[in-house]
Design a protein around this nucleic acid. Structure first.
Lengths: 356, 356
DNA sequence: TTGATTTCCGAAACCGGTTTCGGCAAGTGA
DNA sequence: TCACTTGCCGAAACCGGTTTCGGAAATCAA
């Protein structure tokens, strides 16, 4: 029994150009116009050009939701965010969205964003968006090991692209930053500075990057001819607190490391704390290299040397890849990785003379 | 000359229930079903209930883009993000989006996100989304003085809701946090601690909040019976750097303040720096209260006392208000403010005995 | 009882596109 | 010259909804 109030913005679309206007202006039928614009072979080259020029002139673009009624596709990309606390990605969300949005709009697509808290709600969110045709495909940030989203979408035959890689790569395409190379380079960088005792603090094991970064670290150690000591090797530290705990463990080791590599910046900030608590100066007594490129790292003392990710660029690439996937390109052609960018900001130094 | 590859996910919507299925199941025509669901008066109560129950049972929901073709509305809210650097909102973007998304989906709406860099692109982005019918209305984060977005949308008769207030309030509805009350409370809180020399560092003047927070500060001073000294009063500091500069100015004043109120947290962190540079201990030598509730403030030494905003809740409210606006409710009923939440974390203290 | 209203639903047009189908005209081969 | 393609476009159906209009049945007034 609510009062019916008239929705506002009645004449807002102010007579946009429809396909009928186009047909009239060109003295063709709308079916011909439609097929010309979609590049059908049974429309002559001449007519196609003529139609496309007119579309340009009249600034005509088909309404995506009008097309969708027949094609089922709305020209929009879906992105489902998950609110997890310890998310190094979060400060970069704005850049990421900007990149995705730009990549999408370059292809005539838009971006639909939803968020989910728990797991059930996550699946439900995808399904709702799909049922309502609000997304033609999805960008999956933060690829996880055995990612439930992948299972869902793959089974549903829905296009998707991962930010991160996937072991079971069937039907998967992705864009990722080569964290393994970063970890390897970090080892070699430290080794050039004379370090031989290098500890490692890995990130969240539920994410697929952890395995890669661990392997990168191990490869770097192998290349440097250094043994990996599991006594100064910790997994699954993603918060400052966990990083501090891991750092304490490493620094209290009887033969403590002169350098520590962290798979995520937050953990490194924790290492800063435990180093300070033990009277160790980061940058001289202890070298630290991490990964992510968060802002806090820049403001830390000393500024944290880390591998940064061009999140905006990654967002852009992900959108582009997804659109190509939606258009039917095979996944094998839609897998790419880019290097991280080393920011040598000052948390490393030559191995201390008085080491141990 | 691109190879035509077949788009994937052909049968993905796996036979969703359409209005025709409904009509058949109910032995009614689809026009009746449609009108029943939309609550038309010329459909009997009995039939309406019957139809709605069936919709429930079959899990039927009309395709928004199928409705849109006739109604022009796609049941989606638009949000255009601007990439401006010094944006305290950014760390909260995830929460904000979560709130908006939740509020929207509760009303059967989804969220379309786009981003813009410069001003021209901003307007263009709105217009593209409108022309394509990708958004029925917009949430405008960070209300500005003489906001160009407001002008555009108001003239275009497009529904919108502001996060923040607007002086020229015609056609505007909003949700906002009462920063002015926060500033006032900050003054009174400090005054209760004995402070009489209280400096003020305002935030970005292009935003509409600046005027309000200034007024709140002045009102607090008036209520406390304190004069406002323009010598310890700075405008337009939004970054750590600008905050440090402003702090320096205030602290170098011959009769320096014993407390400083900042309109934004980042500025307060700058004040921390200039206080440290002068050998002043925040929390004892100098009290500081700010506004925003950013995470860095918690990790600062001492933790920054500040007024926090429940960004997720605000996002939720904004979505709800916008939907109501789209449905035609008058703007006057769609204006609300909520209080900020004071987090007394430790950057204030009694006025120092040896003051000056 | 009859004429005038209401009440309530069906029929059909419509929205802006896409896609199938059919057919005319020009070209091709014998 | 005639049958057969081929190239190219129009006609019309269709997608899944909304909305206008008209009319049958039930109710009401007289």
């Amino acid at each position: 029994m609510t009062v019916k109030t008239a929705p506002i913005s009645s004449n807002r679309a102010a007579m946009r150009v429809t396909i009928n206007d186009m047909a009239e202006a060109l003295n063709l039928t709308k079916s011909t116009v439609s097929r010309a614009l979609n590049g059908y072979a049974d429309i002559s080259e001449t007519t196609q050009r003529r139609v496309k020029r007119m579309a340009e002139k009249l600034n005509y673009q088909p309404l995506s939701h009008a097309q969708a009624i027949k094609t089922g596709r709305t020209r929009s990309l879906g992105l489902v965010l998950q609110l997890s606390d310890h998310d190094a990605q979060r400060p970069f969300l704005a850049e990421f969205l900007a990149g995705v949005s730009r990549g999408a709009s370059a292809e005539g697509y838009t971006l639909t964003v939803a968020s989910a808290d728990n797991h059930d709600h996550l699946i439900e969110t995808f399904q709702n968006l799909l049922r309502d045709g609000k997304a033609d495909g999805f960008i999956l940030p933060r690829a996880m090991v055995d990612d439930p989203r992948v299972t869902l979408l793959r089974d549903g035959n829905v296009p998707f692209v991962l930010f991160g890689r996937q072991d079971a790569d069937e039907g998967c395409c992705w864009h990722d930053v080569r964290g393994e190379d970063a970890m390897r380079d970090a080892v070699l960088h430290l080794n050039r500075l004379g370090h031989k005792r290098i500890g490692f603090i890995n990130g969240g094991l539920i994410y697929s990057y952890a395995k890669l970064r661990r392997a990168g670290f191990e490869q770097g150690m192998a290349e440097a001819g250094l043994p990996v000591d599991r006594g100064i090797f910790v997994e699954d530290a993603v918060t400052v607190k966990e990083g501090a705990a891991a750092g304490a463990l490493l620094l209290d080791h009887p033969n403590r490391p002169t350098a520590i590599i962290c798979a995520v910046d937050h953990a490194a900030l924790g290492v800063y704390q435990s180093a300070a608590a033990r009277g160790l100066k980061v940058g001289s007594d202890l070298s630290v290299i991490a990964y992510d490129g968060i802002q806090e790292g820049l403001h830390a003392q000393p500024p944290l040397s880390t591998f940064a990710v061009d999140t905006q660029h990654s967002g852009n690439r992900l959108a582009t890849l997804l659109v190509r996937r939606i258009r039917g390109e095979p996944v094998e052609l839609l897998r790419e990785t880019v290097p991280a960018i080393f920011l040598d900001r000052g948390s490393t130094g030559p191995v201390p003379k008085t080491a141990n």
